[in-house]
């Protein structure tokens, strides 16, 4: 656990240095005033937190500081940190497999290039190490060699994969996989879907169909839609969450590629405005580079060395 936290911290070092680290630099030795608040807002905006969330966080800071008569810089940082940790923590729910409802079906969705297939590979490994029985369904029958890519991941993590030829109907593969997962008493079935821009209504229909068809095999509450968002994404992430949620629900998020200078401040915006919890974060291309999202730890990593 300690090493995991360290890894997350390391991967976020850049983030901290380039952005939230600036908060410390900005407030150091200064008293809280309007000018300082403006500069803090600027730092938040640069982290992709978005205007509405940034304004509301700064507003709250202004009010709380006035009420508690806070002016010292380290207190300001503490306030910001706890506020962001709180935003990230609310509306959390347990969606990872537990108990007798088997199999859990995770529908891994997202726009093109967000990192779905890599995430499925890492998730398979994660759950297997937790002692779960895992199965993968390769439902991206559109992109060239997506199935081959997933196959390599399934071999790396040593889990079964259900596949069909390119161009096959993804819903039929999902159906077969769910049936097979049920028969084999699998704990969790990870369904990799083709990337689709949320503005393409026909592709969103296809996604709905996959969910509908899977629900013929397992109870609807056993199916969870997980949206993978590229950590470099800006405010469009909000639109992605909204549209995917409307189409197939959105039970949780996975933020990929958070190892860049990517700040993923948009996580805060999503948590604040749409109340969808982040489940995992991807922080590299290795099979172990996936971590359960821990809001306080994340907020801490953002602020402290």
């Amino acid at each position: 656990m300690l090493s995991k936290l360290k890894k997350l911290k390391d991967s976020l070092t850049k983030t901290r240095d380039s952005l939230f680290g600036k908060i410390a630099a900005v407030v150091a030795g200064r008293k809280l005033d309007e000018e300082l608040l403006d500069e803090l807002e600027e730092v938040l905006l640069k982290s992709d937190i978005g205007l509405p969330a940034a304004e509301s966080i700064i507003d709250k800071l202004r009010k709380t500081a006035a009420r508690q008569k806070i002016t010292e810089s380290h207190e300001v940082i503490a306030l910001l940190q706890s506020d962001i940790a709180e935003i990230l923590s609310h509306n959390r729910q347990e969606i990872t497999p537990s108990g007798n409802t088997r199999p859990m079906v995770w529908l891994i969705t997202g726009v093109n290039g967000s990192g779905k297939t890599t995430t499925v590979g890492k998730l398979a490994n994660y759950f297997r190490q937790e002692g779960k029985k895992v199965m993968i369904a390769a439902c991206d029958t559109f992109r060239a060699a997506a199935v081959e890519q997933l196959e390599i991941w399934s071999q790396r993590s040593g889990v079964d994969m259900i596949r069909a030829h390119t161009g096959a109907d993804p819903a039929s593969i999902a159906f077969d996989a769910a049936t097979s997962a049920k028969a084999k008493d699998v704990d969790i079935l990870l369904v990799d879907t083709a990337g689709r821009l949320h503005t393409k209504s026909n592709l969103m229909e296809e996604l709905k169909k996959i969910r509908r068809v899977a629900a013929k095999v397992v109870a609807p509450e056993q199916i969870k839609s997980i949206l993978v968002i590229d950590g470099n994404t800006g405010q469009n992430a909000l639109s992605q969450v909204k549209v995917f949620r409307e189409a197939v629900g959105c039970d949780g998020l996975i933020i990929s590629k958070l190892d860049g200078t990517a700040k993923g401040g948009v996580i805060v915006a999503i948590a604040k405005e749409l109340a969808v919890p982040v489940e995992f974060v991807g922080i590299g291309e290795g099979i172990d580079d996936l971590q359960k999202f821990d809001a306080p730890a994340y907020a801490e990593a953002l602020f402290n060395a």
């Binding site: 982290s47 992709d48 290039g113 590229d230 470099n232 994404t233 800006g234 860049g260 200078t261 990517a262």
Partner: peptide, 10 residues
């Protein structure tokens, strides 16, 4: 990617 956020610059 046209969806890139603030980091596009960096």
């Amino acid at each position: 990617d046209s969806m890139t956020g603030q980091d596009a610059v960096t």
